[in-house]
Write a protein that binds this DNA or RNA. Structure first.
Length: 108
DNA sequence: GGATTGACGTGTC
DNA sequence: AGACACGCCAATC
């Protein structure tokens, strides 16, 4: 079975190290999707239904804003999980996002 | 199979 | 600096 774009996104998101965050666009580019950043977020909708839990809370938009927190079981979970991993969230934004930005193309 | 959608990104006003 | 608009691209209806 050919894995859909979603599956590729799931795997890549799962590779995000703890205490680190990534952006939809970066993930999309890592998959060679380029401008399909929206698909990444779209895939995340299934992330909650994915078998192994996908750390979707580590994925934010290019601004480091927790855009998808409302899609979680509980919106507070997202920033809470991030805080647990050492990621400071201020006003729904990841602090020092640029420093915590984990780009597979760069890190790998 | 065309139309709609969507957890984005970048540019412009 | 904040708000608005358009573009991308794949999955779903």
């Amino acid at each position: 079975m050919e894995q859909s774009f979603y599956d590729q996104v799931f795997e890549l998101v799962r590779l995000i190290p703890k205490g680190r965050v990534s952006s939809y666009g970066a993930i999309a580019r890592s998959l060679g999707a380029g401008g399909s950043a929206r698909m990444v977020g779209y895939a995340m909708s299934n992330a909650g239904l994915a078998h192994p839990k996908v750390p979707a809370h580590r994925v934010v938009n290019s601004s480091g804003l927790l855009t998808g927190r409302f899609h979680f079981s509980d919106p507070n979970d997202m920033e809470r999980l991030l805080a647990e991993e050492g990621v400071r969230v201020k006003n729904d934004k990841v602090v020092d996002f640029k420093k915590l930005m984990w780009d597979p193309l760069q890190e790998l």
